[in-house]
């Protein structure tokens, strides 16, 4: 079972993930329309590029924007969780060895202790996001079953990975479940809101360009005060 999960199934999921997300990005860009959106993409130039980068960068800095600062708790939960889900899959020592074996690709590995800390923080952040979702009426109101399922899937992946890593109990089962849920994330990514892993950058870039070339860039410069 573990063999199947770490071999064929892993490769298939990764293929779906990669091809799927690239396809989504390509389709996003192809679907942009200067007339409909009323943004002169072809004339965006340097200002447009700066606007796009600024719009992405500011939101990736903890407390980097006015919006993040106004919502401190959400910002902390978000960044903790995303440190876990973004850094761990790629740079965890266990993962880099695994990917080297399976794919022949080698990533630089995080120090083992750092990887452990990120995974734990990621899990904690995810729990905070879940609590926020349940506790705050305005978030609960927007939440549907899919939101819970996706967040739960991420939490299960993190939890099972940690349990297996520290060999707390049922090692094989936990490892299997970890692989399965991780692969489920890969497969689901192109088809659900998880596509934001790629489309976040597209969406932020678009709005950055919008503000830089059309909504004020000429007067205020490409950097919107996010």
């Amino acid at each position: 079972m573990i063999e199947l999960l770490s071999g064929t199934l892993f490769k298939i999921s990764l293929l779906i993930f990669t091809v799927g997300l690239i396809y989504r990005l390509v389709q996003y860009v192809r679907g942009l329309d200067w007339r409909l959106e009323r943004v002169a993409y072809a004339y965006a130039g340097q200002s447009g590029v700066l606007g796009a980068l600024w719009s992405i960068f500011k939101w990736l800095v903890p407390f980097g924007t006015y919006g993040w600062r106004k919502q401190g708790f959400a910002a902390i939960a978000f960044f903790l969780f995303h440190i876990g889900v973004v850094l761990c899959p790629l740079f965890l020592a266990g993962h880099t060895v695994f990917m080297e074996d399976a794919l022949g690709i080698s990533f630089p590995a995080l120090p083992v202790a750092a990887g452990d800390v990120f995974a734990i923080l990621g899990f904690g952040g995810g729990i905070l996001l879940l609590l926020r979702r349940i506790a705050l009426p305005q978030v609960r109101f927007l939440t549907d079953r899919k939101d819970i399922a996706i967040l739960a899937l991420c939490l299960i992946t993190l939890a099972t990975g940690l349990i297996a890593r520290f060999d707390l109990f049922a090692y094989d089962f936990m490892l299997g479940l970890h692989m399965l849920s991780g692969e489920a994330i890969l497969v689901l990514a192109p088809f659900t809101k998880l596509s934001h892993m790629a489309l976040f950058f597209a969406s932020r870039a678009q709005l950055g360009i919008d503000y830089a070339v059309k909504r004020g860039g000429a007067s205020r410069g490409p950097a919107f005060p996010w």
Binding site: T143, K193, S195, S203
Partner: peptide
């Protein structure tokens, strides 16, 4: 895309 990737986070 906007409609799809909305995280329903209420920020």
């Amino acid at each position: 895309t906007w409609l799809e990737i909305c995280a329903h986070c209420s920020l």
